[in-house]
Design a protein around this nucleic acid. Structure first.
Lengths: 183, 183, 183, 183
DNA sequence: ACTCGCGGGACATCCCGTTTAT
DNA sequence: ATAAACGGGATGTCCCGCGAGT
């Protein structure tokens, strides 16, 4: 049922994900929300975004251990989101971005979104370090990859066209290979 | 008074930008909302995001005509948003991203966000073409630059730290210089 | 332009007839409402219902002077409203009834509606008196005829079917002929 | 609490019956409106008019089974509404007429009003058939009776005078007795 | 005389969290 | 622990009437 929330988050954002919709979508009982999530909606959204974040992070870790390298991880990430967009008729973007965009001030949700992104960055950075990059460079490159993918998801979503994601994927691979040559 | 809406959009998103706040912030009278924006809130938000989009686009165009080149434009764009984040204690992100994230389905707002991004891409692409890139490559590179900047704005916002923007700026300049060398 | 208001009254009722719609429908200038109707909306509605009432009354008077008798008047009234219903896809009922239903308390509109009905009753009553009925009987019969027609307009409108009006027309003619035989 | 809505409907019409008034009048809590009537105001009004319609229909059915005949039913109906008018200082008319007048197009409310009227007609028609009238005549007569009563309620309301209802009552009884003699 | 902008208010909808019964 | 009802709040939309500017 956290999955329901995550799906709705990707499609409708935080404000668009009301309790009523989550319950209708998940078929979960109505009265149990307070029991399972005493913190209210924030706690539910936090659980959903954290789950989505760690799910993706674990996929990335598996890819890393499979030895596909940074370029493989980036390509997989692009494909993952492009696939989600196409399956949903360009409605479902990135849940972390959705939360990030609608979380303000010192909201715990903001920290959760930051943590999820950090998680992804860590995986990518360590792979890049393993590939011979300096620690700082690796962090910069990983940041750029994740940022570019996130940005291109937004662009693809509003344009209803996966090409922005593909273009960014191509350029990031090029960036990685150049660095690889230099490193 | 569209400016008020744009500012609030950057800080609070679409749903967080209520009429009451816009009116309180702009000092405009309550009853004239219907008169100026018969289409309701959507029309106001659309006007705000379009204004913000063309404002930034015109800045970019001016930079382009000043001959600072693609790298200069990218650097300026990063600095512009990083500055906005710092001035607002990391509350104000990109208005276009805010609208993009909270506009769904076939919403006209989605098209407006897409148009604004397209506008920026056009400027950057034409500069890249002038610098000797092939048409398609130029489009890809421009897309990557804008996407990475947008993504890094989000990352910087949730981390309350401008370093992601700086890291992306550095990497994009590197990407452009490599391409420049190759082109 | 009072005609526009009258038409909208028949279709949309008092509350459904806003200034904006009247102006859009009549093409009249916006700022002149206050000049022509300083009393505001009530004055406009009052003018519309009075105009509609006297228009119908004058038609009835013409029929009376044509010597068609009470039955002719009743038949014409039924046909008039049935025609209006059919032409408007059963949207346009009786403007007087619309005002009567939505006017409350000691509203001047109530009096205007009452006056319009009274006007019609007077015509019919005097014809009935001329046909030999006692003053009181004539008033009762006229009241019944107008009431039945008004009620059947409502029934025809909600059923989207002119048969209630036809049925009432038949019965009223029967009622008049019986009285005629007795008188 | 549906009763509250029905009472207010008779007095103030559909548009004049705001949620705030219904809640104030019924003492019901504000937040539970959505829960009890997910369809919003339309659903509440529909429930109110349906309840009022079936309430009256059941009264008529009881009278029919008591053997008072068509004339008894008509007289009771007139008295019922005349009483309501007098008790309310001529503010409370017929709830069905109120809904009928303010329901437009293919509104479900229109159908509900039509159904209520149909219900009443069925009772009266079957009694008339039992009294020896032909099926079609019975329908016409019933329609005329209900229509005349509805129309006279409106007339009595705007004139603040129950005499229209009494006059119509007398004439309808006369109509029924003549038909009875003929049948 | 007409337009535009102002000013306030009311209304319907929706949402969220709590509390009380089963 | 699940369900229903409660309680208040905020939002967006619409409408009406009044003045200033041309």
């Amino acid at each position: 049922m956290v999955r329901s929330a995550a799906v709705l988050l990707r499609r409708n954002g935080v404000r668009g994900t009301s309790f009523a919709r989550v319950l209708a979508d998940s078929g979960a009982p109505r009265g149990s929300v307070t029991h399972h999530f005493p913190g209210g909606k924030d706690e539910l959204v936090l659980a959903a975004v954290s789950a989505a974040g760690t799910d993706i992070a674990s996929r990335l870790r598996r890819l890393a251990s499979d030895g596909v390298g940074a370029s493989g991880i980036v390509a997989a990430l692009c494909e993952y989101f492009a696939d989600g967009l196409q399956r949903s008729d360009f409605r479902a973007g990135c849940p972390v971005a959705a939360v990030a965009q609608e979380a303000f001030d010192a909201d715990p949700l903001r920290d959760a979104a930051a943590a999820a992104l950090e998680d992804w960055l860590d995986v990518l950075t360590s792979v890049l370090v393993d590939e011979g990059h300096a620690e700082q460079d690796a962090g910069d490159i990983a940041t750029t990859c994740v940022a570019a993918i996130e940005g291109s998801i937004m662009m693809a979503r509003v344009r209803r066209d996966r090409r922005p994601l593909d273009a960014v994927g191509r350029q990031l691979l090029s960036l990685l290979s150049v660095h690889g040559l230099q490193g």
